[in-house]
Design a protein around this nucleic acid. Sequence first.
DNA 1: GCCAACGTTGGC
DNA 2: GCCAACGTTGGC
Length: 150
Amino acid sequence: MKSEPDVYSIADLQRDGHTCWDGVRNYQARNFMRDEMRLGDEILFYHSNAQPMGISGVAKVVREAYPDHTAWDKKHHHYDPKASPDNPLWQMVDIRLERIFAQPLALDALRKVPELKGMELLRKGSRLSVQPVRASEFDTVLKLACKKTK
DNA sequence: GCCAACGTTGGC
DNA sequence: GCCAACGTTGGC
């Protein structure tokens, strides 16, 4: 899952403990949350438009997809006139912080890792804010995070 | 700030 | 259903 730290950072998640991932307004990203994310699934938390850009930690799904009520809140930044309580349109999951990496794994460093060659995050033009990660990629990322701490 | 790579919208 | 115009994302 991607987030701009100016908007919501992993430090914010640490402060809050858990949060609802509202504001996703892309169908593909919504579908991944709705159809693929299950209770207990682990999430890589990515900082975009940041210094440094990269994976900053791990979170966990603590509630499966349910309607994103901010979609029909006129005052909300992510308001969508097509959404309503009867037709929620957009969904969100709740996540909880698991750990923050001692050193974030920078995007340019990740690009140099052969095992991550096929990772969606590293694909040119990849813009999905919620995207799948292969188990092997997840393991590789965790190993890199471990190595960096030493 | 630039711009490539998207996704969405709406006229036809 | 096509596609041009437009808006957004996000690395650089």
